[in-house]
Design a protein around this nucleic acid. Structure first.
Lengths: 196, 196
DNA sequence: CACATTTCTTAATCTAGATTAAGAATCCCC
DNA sequence: GGGGATTCTTAATCTAGATTAAGAAATGTG
């Protein structure tokens, strides 16, 4: 049987950055996680469902999007290696989600159901601390994103995004980056032709 | 001596919505909170400082803003009754803040220093759970705000804001609402004249 | 109460970025 | 490796909302 310490090395590194867990605690934590492999274009969540889990992305890319009034797909998040993705609104409030989470590449994830998360936190109060700290970092990230969105021009936004995520341009279609940044694909095309 | 159960009734209600605490646990929690009264225009935080605390607003209004490249004050949050306010980036990462938190009215707050928060969480692991859940709700709120910002027109944004916060229009100057919503005060004025 | 400061309004002009439309590359799958 | 689907580009036109400027209300303060 696989040694639990080599099972999800990235996740273990990730956890240790936030809290200090013993061997047994890590084993307990990992025992609640369900590995899954997604094919490209496979969905983790679809609009109309209640989201029941949080997903840790080991390797791959997913996008979270909703369909706006005009019928366009609006991307609200990308999920990449070593990041959690879920619809927090739906998973916390147990409301019907209005969004989709879809793999953009073949993607390996670990699923933690909200039920299991709560059981885990009873058994291991440090899990509450871990998820508190993850939430704080996640909040800081979205706050920074909101500030960028509000203060930068379209061109600055795009340049900042690709300089922070250089590999992204290769991995996901440009029109999806445009959607994530709240601009039209034609405008991104214009920006890119300017910069060359 | 004042009975601790009547000391901060709003805070107690607020806590009970998230976790179930015994009398003693509540007393412990409250013992870490420092009440403070702010005069209108008094600052809780100024750019250049490291933010060391989180603040629970009992009664009043504060704004959190930064000075942008052009020298304008950009409002990033309002803090109102029964809401926490802090610069999470600064308080968590212990970095120098670039923003100000200022009372817009005489305001009563409870201060919880980050040091004390950590001590509290050691003594009372349920505090981790409480702050995890608060962070989740806070995240859901900012996520919704980002989605509004990205999908609504200026006019829809303003109407949505005032319908969700009807008392606000009386309590804070209109140009601050404009700043919070990322639009010019002239444009808000135009919108309001259209709607009458 | 008067005067200074703060806040709000109106209107003209200007601009970043959307929209529309069409064609050109690319990418995949049979 | 050929043909349909997907993605990207270019260019013309259009529009929401910024900017500028000036005056009018409202508010606060000695």
């Amino acid at each position: 049987m696989e040694n639990r310490n080599t099972m999800h090395p990235d996740l273990l590194d990730y956890i240790q950055r936030y809290v200090d867990l013993s061997e047994e605690e890590i084993a307990l934590f990992v025992s609640y996680l369900k590995p899954r492999n997604l094919k490209k274009k496979e969905f983790l969540l679809e609009a109309g469902q209640v989201c029941r889990s949080r997903y840790f992305i080991i390797k791959g890319v997913v996008r979270q999007f909703y369909i706006d009034k005009k019928g366009n797909e609006q991307i609200i998040h990308f999920g990449v290696d070593n990041w959690w993705i879920t619809d927090y609104e739906s998973v916390i409030n147990k409301t019907v989600s209005n969004c989709y989470i879809e793999a953009l590449e073949d993607t390996q994830i670990l699923e933690l159901s909200e039920e299991d998360l709560n059981r885990l936190c009873v058994e291991l109060p440090k899990a509450d601390q871990l998820f508190r700290k993850i939430m704080e970092k996640t909040y800081i990230a979205i706050q920074a994103r909101l500030e960028f969105m509000m203060s930068l021009s379209g061109e600055e936004l795009f340049q900042t995004f690709i300089s922070h995520n250089p590999d992204f341009v290769q991995r996901v279609p440009q029109y999806m980056i445009a959607s994530y940044l709240g601009m039209s694909p034609e405008f991104v095309s214009k920006i890119r032709s300017r910069k060359k």
